[in-house]
Design a binder for these strands. Structure first.
Length: 216
DNA sequence: TGCCAGGCCCTCTTTAGGGCCTT
C-alpha cells in the first residue's frame, strides 16, 4: 500500500508506543497497552493511553518489565474496542515511533484483526537518532533521553511515558537539524526519507537537500 | 514453562554473520 503522507497535515504528528506480550505478532504476541501523544506545531497538545485485554496471558517476564499485570488487564477493555478508538485518534495523521518497525508490525496486526488499514506514514526516531546523534553512547530510548537531557519522569516500559519521551526526542532531532545543520524545511517527508536513506548514501542525501552533513 | 522476530548496519562483506533496538 502506497502512503501519500505528503497529503496529510504537515503541522500534526502522533508519536506512539505499544507494550506487548512479546516481540512478534506473527508468533502470537499481542498488544496490552497503547500510548500516544499528539504534536501540533511543535507542541504536545493531546494524549491517548489505554490498557487492553487481548485474552492471552502476559508472561512473567513482561509483567516484571512493564509492571502491567494479568490482574490489571483483566478488567480492561478489549483490544478491539481500544484499537478502534486509537484508529480514530491517528486518522489522517502521520506517525513516529522509536524502532518503528517493531510498533508498526503490532499496529498493522491489531488493525488487521478489526479490519482496518493504517493510511499514515510512519517514521522512526531510532533510525533518525542513529543518523543525527551519532555520538550518543547507544540509541536506546532511555539513553537518548539522558544524553539530550529530555523531559522525563523516569518511567520506562509504559506506553504513554515512552511515547512522551519519544516525542521530546523527535522535537530534539528537529531542533538539532535546524540549529546545527541550518535546515528549516523539516517536513515529515524529509524526516521519513532521511531515516529510509541507507547510511552510506547520507552524504549525497544531505548535499541534495543543502543540509550541512552531520556525518562524521 | 520456555521459547519465539525482523530491519538496519557494520565488517574480518556481498556465496555471511553478528550486534543493536523494540517487548
Amino acid at each position: 500500500m502506497n502512503i501519500d503522507f505528503h497529503s496529510l497535515p504537515a503541522d500534526q504528528l502522533v508519536v506512539f508506543d505499544f507494550e506487548t506480550t512479546g516481540l512478534s505478532p506473527d508468533m502470537g504476541d499481542r498488544s496490552i497497552e497503547i500510548g500516544a501523544v499528539l504534536i501540533e506545531n511543535g507542541k504536545i497538545t493531546g494524549r491517548f493511553q489505554q490498557l487492553m485485554n487481548p485474552g492471552v496471558r502476559i508472561p512473567l517476564f513482561i509483567e516484571n518489565l512493564t509492571g502491567i499485570t494479568n490482574a490489571m488487564i483483566k478488567e480492561s477493555r478489549s483490544n478491539t474496542e481500544v484499537m478502534s478508538d486509537f484508529y480514530d485518534f491517528i486518522a489522517g495523521r502521520n506517525l513516529v515511533a522509536h524502532n518503528a518497525s517493531f510498533d508498526e508490525r503490532f499496529l498493522r496486526a491489531e488493525f488487521r484483526r478489526i479490519k482496518k488499514q493504517c493510511s499514515s506514514g510512519i517514521a522512526c526516531s531510532l533510525l533518525a537518532a542513529r543518523r543525527i546523534f551519532q555520538n550518543a553512547p547507544n540509541h536506546q530510548l532511555a539513553t537518548l533521553a539522558q544524553y539530550k537531557n529530555l523531559p522525563s519522569d523516569g518511567v520506562y516500559h509504559r506506553a504513554l511515558a515512552d511515547a512522551e519521551v519519544t516525542a521530546h526526542l523527535w522535537l530534539s532531532l528537529l531542533a538539532e537539524l535546524r540549529e546545527q545543520h541550518e535546515f528549516d524545511e523539516l517536513t515529515f517527508g524529509f524526516m521519513h526519507t532521511l531515516t529510509k536513506t541507507p547510511k552510506h548514501q547520507l552524504r549525497q542525501f544531505y548535499a541534495k537537500h543543502k543540509v550541512k552533513s552531520p556525518v562524521i
